[in-house]
Design a binder for these strands. Sequence first.
DNA 1: CAAGATTGAACTGTCAATCTTT
DNA 2: AAAGATTGACAGTTCAATCTTG
Lengths: 149, 149
Amino acid sequence: MSTKLGLSQLKAWSSLLVGHARIFQKIEREFDAEKGVVPFHWYDVLFILNQQKEKQMRLSELAETIVTSKSALTRSIDKMEEAGLVKKVQCAEDKRGQYAVMTAKGHAALKVSWPHYRTAIYNHFGKYLTGTEARELERLLTKVSGPQK
Amino acid sequence: MSTKLGLSQLKAWSSLLVGHARIFQKIEREFDAEKGVVPFHWYDVLFILNQQKEKQMRLSELAETIVTSKSALTRSIDKMEEAGLVKKVQCAEDKRGQYAVMTAKGHAALKVSWPHYRTAIYNHFGKYLTGTEARELERLLTKVSGPQK
DNA sequence: CAAGATTGAACTGTCAATCTTT
DNA sequence: AAAGATTGACAGTTCAATCTTG
């Protein structure tokens, strides 16, 4: 396997590191004291669950989707369950499995949080891109994250 | 302040989240058992120090450069000092300040680690991009991370 | 034995408080 | 009072070990 890492690729890599860190630093800074706005990781979970019919998903599948580890997800989901935003339900077909199911309170939290995130994403990310640039950035980031699995 | 976050911008945002997470997951996975290869954050520190004349930098400046908090950096640098890769030296002009200075062992660790990172960055990132695409990705990520400060 | 999920122990990062120097 | 840096307490993450079911 070759290792021809060119200078332009290395600079692109560096811009990914720094750009991602900067943007996140700014966005997370905004929501420290907000009321009813859930933390980013929770938002991610609720966002994905909301896309599913039945508003539920298997834990292992959810972990893959939001790109985290099974153990980290178990702990997040337990916290979210304490907060009443999801509940865990045993799988009927496969007794090893668990579903995370979004509750009404979870759906409400998603709705309350979204305008805040939308504004932050716009102010610290979206407003710097034209539509064409946004589509090109998406294309390149998708390409570069490689084949699934 | 407006909140016109378009769909293309939102999709670009999502690709940044997922892309970054996927690529990092793969690269970090590769170095669990490697010998003499320092963790990513340490590599970052050594890389930056190596660019400086005198191979040293003030802690607060270093924290800004690698986009992390002062307290997190203090803890990293202390660990790196334990491992002998840097040492801390009090600033002569400003007695509040500390320099992180790369040691010979630190420089050796940088040299040992680099080929591993170069290969990983190539395999999980660089190889998916042509030179033109890499330059365009860098341009967009730099633009989108906004004005400094 | 493998897959889904959980847990304990150790580690790392974060926030606010603190200390020293400017 | 503000800046550079550190620290204690705490929350979140990771790794390997474990348990249950397939």
